[in-house]
Design a protein around this nucleic acid. Structure first.
Lengths: 330, 330
DNA sequence: CTGAAAGCGCTTACAG
DNA sequence: CTGAAAGCGCTTACAG
């Protein structure tokens, strides 16, 4: 039972291997009786076609490549959750490729292509414009469908799924301003992730419209590092509210503020832009823009199946809705 | 440049495809001059062998299958981080398979085998004994090397990597008892994950040795659910310390306790058994057994490469060291 | 050291 | 509706 092949099935069902293959791929072209007989044998032997051989013969691997920067980031794993569920539903296998900082990006892309994936889900939002151009051109040359998954890239020809980060951040900034806040800081990462850049644009817009100077504070995603930053920050700046690109950074900020005798939200309002589990495990709980990360993953995967199967796509740039979850921090 | 094949390389280098293949797989068998010539052409054309074709011909896919329950769990993604890094180093591709609750386990295993992976990393610790037996037998029949990654299974013939959860929990329970605690509760999940069961064994042992009755409280991993549980729990029980199988649950507990006017650690000591980011983002910060999850993933993958390449393995059950990180919560 | 040839386990026109 | 045969892009004994 170790390795049943199509020949074994053909032999046991007394048909040719071509017929077995047809039963699996074009059942309607096979006489119902023969079909049933073959199906029975397949079941009996627990036969599953060798995916590699099938891939070579059909020139389709029914595998998608997921290219990401870092799995351990919460958003990455949430995206993966959505991707895997939908991939399973459509019978695609999922191969993972990481592009760590400092590694050869082109080499990784070459590996992805060599693995013969039928489509690519690109989740790495840590590349700069030039690198993105290179990667996208490479994929285009290889003629592999691609969907950007929670990554912003200014080229309308590349399909993508995300939310309108600019608008969401604009909106929540307006809310803080409407509540009478003046010194609204935008706390973002030192690293320039594409989506965080867009959050920043929305924030600036709201501030500028209100006749205020944008106030931006950059810090590390590493909690041990940003704690020290925040002590400094609070000492040197007048601040009545902050908007943080990451929930964990917002929570870290709240902890420092409270330790320094400040009260949240009385002295400072705090909002996050993700709505992860950190937001409900903090004290006070964190008001957030809710980014539907799992859905972004799921929808990307679904969109990619359409491209891989040459189905018609009406909307190549999907913008999912978001909501704002009001909690205790503002 | 879309799809360079071995024939293109052979043609351009004026050798047969067999020689090109040898340059890639057994370079020492090729005349250095020819080898250099071929390598130059490979580089020029940006050639990478079609992984699928190579897989079929060599009957090795250089792919490992990672079988897990749920990607979005923090520990899963951390394990994945270690796995991916090492897989990349050894030139293995990584394919993901999820086994969600209620799905057909055998069907998933059939899929894994059909995908022709060279080895399996099994991360799903949510199966019961019977299910594990079935899965392990299936893998054995298929003759695919497997390593259990942070999963406990009582069969010494199956290689695995984890820490000694029993001992770690025993130790930290002893520490609490040594500090004079009497009502030490073990807070675990309703679901019986294999590693949590082993944590429980260590806890019971310490309690029993101290002549105390084990006090076990089961709750949900879902914060909105366990918050309510904890209110009830605090009302009805005398408790001076808790040990939680998950950091997030410990943090949730602290929040509820503090909201109910209790002080941590003055009234209740709290410790976690993971050491995730939750432990440093809580107020107070959480004392933890530090489980080196990334390392468990990395070491599992390394171990698996040895099996896949028929290298000798001296230690099939790897038990990694852990440490205890003292913070503010006890 | 190198090439011709068989074969990996499938799919897919092509006949019949 | 079914089978024989070619072919997918490689690897690997086998000759030479």
């Amino acid at each position: 039972m170790a390795n049943t092949t199509i020949y074994d099935v053909a032999g046991a069902a007394k048909v040719s291997l071509a017929t077995v293959s047809r039963v699996m791929n074009n059942p309607e072209k096979v006489n119902p009786e023969t079909r049933e007989r073959v199906l029975r044998v397949i079941k009996e032997l627990g036969y599953r076609p060798n995916a590699i051989a099938r891939g070579l013969a059909s020139r389709k691997s029914t595998t998608v490549g997921v290219v990401m920067a870092d799995v351990s980031r919460a958003s990455t794993s949430q995206l993966l959750g959505g991707i895997i569920d939908i991939a399973k539903k459509y019978d695609y296998a999922v191969k993972l490729f990481s592009m760590s900082e400092g590694e050869d990006i082109k080499e990784t892309m070459r590996a992805v292509v060599a693995e013969q994936v039928d489509g690519i889900l690109f989740l790495n939002d840590e590349l700069d414009k030039e690198q993105m151009n290179m990667v996208m051109n490479y994929i285009k040359d290889a003629q592999i469908p691609v969907v950007l998954c929670n990554v912003i890239y200014e080229d309308d020809s590349v399909p993508s799924v995300s939310i309108d980060y600019e608008k969401a951040t604009y909106e929540i900034t307006k809310e803080l301003l409407a509540a009478g806040k003046k010194n609204v800081y935008f706390v973002t990462t030192v690293r320039r992730y594409t989506i965080n850049v867009h959050k920043g644009i929305g924030y600036r817009k709201a501030m500028t419209e209100a006749g205020l100077e944008p106030l931006i504070f950059r810090t590390s995603g590493d909690v041990t590092v940003n704690s020290l930053h925040f002590e400094e920050f609070l000492k040197n700046n007048k601040v009545d509210s902050i908007i943080s690109v990451r929930d964990s950074i917002a929570v870290s900020f709240m902890n420092i503020a409270i330790r320094n005798g400040l009260s949240i939200p009385k002295d400072i309002s705090v909002v996050g832009l993700q709505n992860t589990k950190y937001a409900i495990l903090s004290r006070p709980t964190l008001t957030c823009v809710d980014t539907p990360v799992y859905d972004i993953g799921a929808v990307s995967m679904r969109l990619l199946t359409k491209y891989m199967q040459q189905q018609e796509v009406t909307e190549s740039k999907v913008v999912l809705p978001y909501s704002i979850v009001k909690r205790e921090s503002n």
